[in-house]
Design a protein around this nucleic acid. Structure first.
Lengths: 123, 123
DNA sequence: ATTATTGTATTAAGCGCTTAATACAATAAT
DNA sequence: ATTATTGTATTAAGCGCTTAATACAATAAT
């Protein structure tokens, strides 16, 4: 899974999002141990300080827990993870509809375009 | 129409997008005259240099034309505008579906969530 | 006991973005 | 003819982000 970082936004926010969806999609299940800051940084080809910053953010959001000397792990609270997944999905939908509305597409057109393009998505 | 600039991404890219949708949605129709750099900058509460940068970008994209001493105007090429509108819409849909896929939603769920939220959009 | 691995902190440097202050040439407006 | 308005260019400063280098305390691993 490539990290695919772009220079158009702060890297640490992109790291947050990337790790976020790894948690929300189950790559790291509740309670799982995360690689160390240094390993994650190496994996993402990023400075450890930058990764540290991303992890601090995720901790603030309650998705991960720090164990000072034995690394970090995903929260055990699977309900919180589920809620975060729904919340973020709704945000995505909301932002998307807003943009399409700005471009002048109405409900019907939006659904039409999606149906034309959705085949690439699994299931 | 508020410009609604956020500090999480470069301002000039947000200016580009904002002016872009004003063109694509017809606020500025083909051939229309744009306000001066200084006026646009004042309107967006931004430094003229920053606005200048955004306009240079839009010119590079072919959406606007500079007349050196009499300001700028929107391209007369309405076909290009139409194509840009479709292209950008498809990009938005593509990015959106990609994100939802990453969050673990399948086709059915995506359509379901959209149908639940789409009422806020006009028509 | 010793060593390696945690997270954490600090300092300095470089970079792009943004603002502010100015200035200039070309030309539209008067 | 004069004035105002275009876009454009330059310089300096401040800011956040990122990297690099380094160090430290706590503790897990050996």
């Amino acid at each position: 899974m490539p990290w695919d970082l772009k220079p158009d936004r702060p890297i640490y926010t992109q790291l947050v999002e990337h790790i976020e969806w790894m948690i929300l999609s189950g790559v790291y299940p509740p309670g799982a141990k995360l690689p160390s800051v240094r390993d994650l940084a190496r994996e993402a080809s990023v400075n450890p300080n930058t990764m540290q910053r991303a992890l601090a953010q995720l901790e603030e959001d309650g998705l991960i827990i720090t164990h000072r000397t034995s690394g970090r792990s995903i929260t055990e609270d699977s309900e919180m993870i589920q809620k975060a997944r729904i919340r973020i999905a709704r945000e995505q939908v909301s932002e998307f509809l807003e943009k399409m509305k700005k471009l002048g597409f109405d409900k019907k057109e939006i659904l039409s375009i999606i149906n034309n393009m959705i085949e690439e998505v699994g299931k």
